[in-house]
Amino acid sequence: MTQASQDSSSDAMLEKLKTKPGSTKELFNKFMTGLTAFFTVAILIPLVAVVFDVAREGVGQLGLNVFTERPPAPGLTGGGFGNAIVGTLITLGIASLIAIPIGVLAAIYLSEFGRGTKVAYGIRFAANVLTGVPAILAGLFSYSIVVINFGGFSAFAGGVALSVLMIPIVMRTTEEGLKLVPRGMRDASLAVGATQFQTIAKVVVPAALPTIATAVTLAVARAGGEAAPLLFTALNNNFWSFDPGRPIATLPVLIYFFSIIPYRPQQQLAWTAALVLLGIILIVSVTSRFLTRQKQF
């Protein structure tokens, strides 16, 4: 090849590197980028709209009294829903106490011991099905097991119903987190003479804590907003109650009842309750992240 022809061919190569504004390829590229950006913004619309709506309608009533007082009688103004806040915290607390240990331990089994086994596959499949089951069926389950056999409607029965919703979420998300812990860390731990249990407890689970926190937050957020499974388990209660063995008021159930009765003050209170519920879920999410944050990862 001569010097001249080499030069001209490298010129042609350089020409190929330059962008060609207005070419179909270029336009299509721009169009697709724009499309993805548009839908990214679009999915924010419902979220922002809901938060904005709830805040606008609910913030007017927000005062200390909603946290400290009981709901007013139909038609009367004032009052609050302190008992329902407490009730929501108690039922969610019970549900978490049941769901987190079961979900996390099951996830540990799936990721550390049962990888690739038929049992693990079956459990994973069942959990996926359970995530898609309508929430009211979780209530039905708790009703037929707890309510009927163990002293009627109660906060505990409500917690059991919610835990059924939480377990698959905690389990699946935690499992994903455990799987992300590199194989090398397990090897390193075993290589200094740790048992498999020590390796899981001291290396794998701590490394996966942020994901476990996400798992718990997702599960609490899902369960915290459900009214259906509580309607015939925790029932409702117009009075203060701290007893897990008795019916209890909860925010979703209160929102449900107050938004369908034709009294304006109650409807207003339902908006405020929705705002408080959003706040609680936000606080759970922020604290769980704060508690499990890694110094450096």
């Binding site: 090897d187 390193a188 003479g193 290396v203």
Partner: peptide, 21 residues
Amino acid sequence: PVQVRRRIGMVFQKPNPFPKS
């Protein structure tokens, strides 16, 4: 095997420190 690994240690191809101090 746990005692064996205690006395015969290993360093791996990829550095794999724990996410600890």
